[in-house]
Design a protein around this nucleic acid. Structure first.
Lengths: 124, 124
DNA sequence: GTCAAACTACGAGAGATGTCGAACAATCCT
DNA sequence: AGGATTGTTCGACATCTCTCGTAGTTTGAC
């Protein structure tokens, strides 16, 4: 499609609405190290980040896969912005459904990171 | 083995010590509906429960599998008591490692249960 | 229109996972 | 010892998951 589109970005991505988000899916989405790392970084920055911002030790197609799992489970929201795809935590939705859950997971990641000598990333 | 054993129960089960428990593994263990159900019930009762107490819609071998995943990830502690195998949440360990995490998950399960019309189990 | 950048889609492969059924093992009770 | 209860082990199978590489699409810039 090359036709103009009314509202800004042409490509729309399927997201579960708040009520459709399932705890099991969220837990599963968070149970992968790569995805946990993504979520951790999104929370630390507290803002949208493009996919390319993340320097994961996997290929781009694998990265795409992980972001999709996070989106389809309802953990993040993705929107296209030019050629970039921006990602943001769905903090409000998750907190409305599962109060305190996301925060405790984020705290747990940090804690565990500190506990196991944080293999710090090469400064970018 | 039929020889007497000094400390009570003969068969010993491998458990991760507190420091070995990984968040990813716990999240994965909790991401299955059957296992979430088990954990929910253990928390509700607040005490040890035998495997046979649970009336899961799967075979015994599958049940064994789920309990093992929960034990190996550090979510529950299992001990033999006669022919029965007793299961208890490792609440203290989890709370020491990931403060508030378990409680928020338990609350989330309950909440989601209520939210989606609780297909209540046939009274046992 | 062309080119580079950022992602996606598709196909494939290795490995994990959830499930079952049948046979086995440990413990308790009589 | 014999039988009942509880849970395990093993092999099998279908499915899912994570990963990659290559080829393709969409967008922005020149």
């Amino acid at each position: 499609m090359t036709t103009a589109d009314p509202a800004g970005s042409s490509r729309d991505l399927p997201h579960p609405v708040r009520e459709e988000i399932r705890l099991e899916s969220v837990l599963h989405a968070l149970s992968d190290p790569m995805r946990l790392r993504i979520v951790r970084e999104l929370a630390a920055v507290g803002d949208e980040l493009s996919c390319s911002h993340f320097d994961l030790p996997v290929t781009k197609s694998t990265t795409t896969h992980h972001f999709r799992v996070l989106r389809e489970s309802g953990v993040i929201r993705q929107v296209y912005r030019g050629t970039a795809k921006m990602n943001a935590l769905r903090g409000a939705d998750l907190d409305a459904l599962f109060p305190g859950f996301l925060d405790s997971v984020l705290a747990a990641i940090e804690r565990q990171g500190e506990r196991l000598g944080e293999p710090r990333r090469p400064a970018g």
